Amino acid sequence: MQRLRPIEAIRPLVPVLLIVLAGCRQASIPVDNIASPAVASTPSPAPADGRIRFGSGDRTVFTAPDGRRFQIGSLLTLPGRMSFGDSVWNDRGAGAGPIWIRIDLARQLISVFRSSDEIGTAVIVYGSDGKATPTGAFPVLGRERLHRSTLYDADMPYTLWLTRDGVAIHASTVEEGRATHGCVGLPMDFARRLFAVARRGDVAFIVPASSPGDAGRSAGHST
């Protein structure tokens, strides 16, 4: 049977106003306390469009940090066990609708949805060492194709600003043993694809290591 990936809080996040950009609070920094991402193994065989669909009566419901509820219509199948630097992007067969993003810090995964269909997923790095990544619901405040952090002297390609004090989603070095100064770091190609579809006002839901209401939804990709 198909093996599905865990799924929790999700919703769009995107945009921008004037933000004081002294630089994202995150340049990738090495740390030794970041666990390997928890991801399921390869589904077999994969559906023709690369996604596992749920009927209207058996859909998972994600309750976002702000109380909004989202039904999940489909999740992407994975080519194998995902590890640092891996990503999957596939919008074939996905319905029309708003983009929303779920970032799961416990599993080190990002899931991008268009309406109820997942169109992308990747392993991430996030904040550590006193620069924790905030949790909650964050509309995208702005977009910047190539930002240069003056604070950390680092490039931040494909930046989606989430807070006015510099927390963002952007391309980063996604390797085991690395973390950020509070931002969410993505593989370069995945960050480029996300930047292309995300717009100001889309919402990113960042879920902490444990979240009330997530019980029973940790087997989104299950047998």
Rank of each mutant, 00 (worst) to 15 (best):
A168E: 02
T163K: 03
G120E: 02
R145H: 05
I169T: 01
F190I: 02
S83K: 12
I119R: 00
R178C: 11
R59P: 07
L151I: 13
Y126I: 09
E144N: 07
D58Y: 11
A154Q: 10
G130R: 06
S56G: 12
E175K: 15
E118S: 02
E175F: 11
I103C: 09
I169Y: 04
G57P: 00
P98V: 08
D66P: 06
G185R: 11
P139H: 03
G136N: 06
V125T: 15
A94I: 08
A137S: 15
D189C: 02
Y126R: 12
T77M: 09
K131V: 06
T159P: 01
R143Y: 03
L162G: 00
A179D: 06
G97I: 08
F113A: 01
I110H: 00
L186W: 06
A171H: 05
P134N: 02
D104W: 02
E176P: 12
D91C: 12
I72K: 13
D165I: 01
P157A: 06
R143Q: 09
G85D: 10
G166M: 02
A179H: 04
S116Y: 07
D155P: 07
L76A: 07
E175V: 12
G130T: 03
F62E: 14
T77A: 15
I52P: 00
G127H: 01
I99G: 02
F190G: 04
S172L: 08
Q108E: 10
E144T: 10
V112S: 06
R59N: 06
G93R: 05
V61N: 12
G130H: 04
T135R: 07
T135P: 06
G130M: 03
P139W: 00
R92H: 12
S172E: 15
A191F: 08
D155M: 04
G57R: 13
L194H: 01
L194K: 00
D189R: 10
P65N: 12
V61G: 07
C183F: 05
D155L: 09
L105R: 03
R148H: 14
L109W: 01
S149K: 03
I101H: 06
L78D: 11
F70Q: 12
R53H: 06
V61L: 12
G85N: 09
A132T: 11
L76G: 07
A64R: 15
D165V: 01
Q108M: 12
L186F: 13
R193M: 13
S74L: 08
G142R: 15
R107V: 01
D66F: 03
A137V: 14
P98C: 07
P187G: 03
R81N: 14
D165M: 00
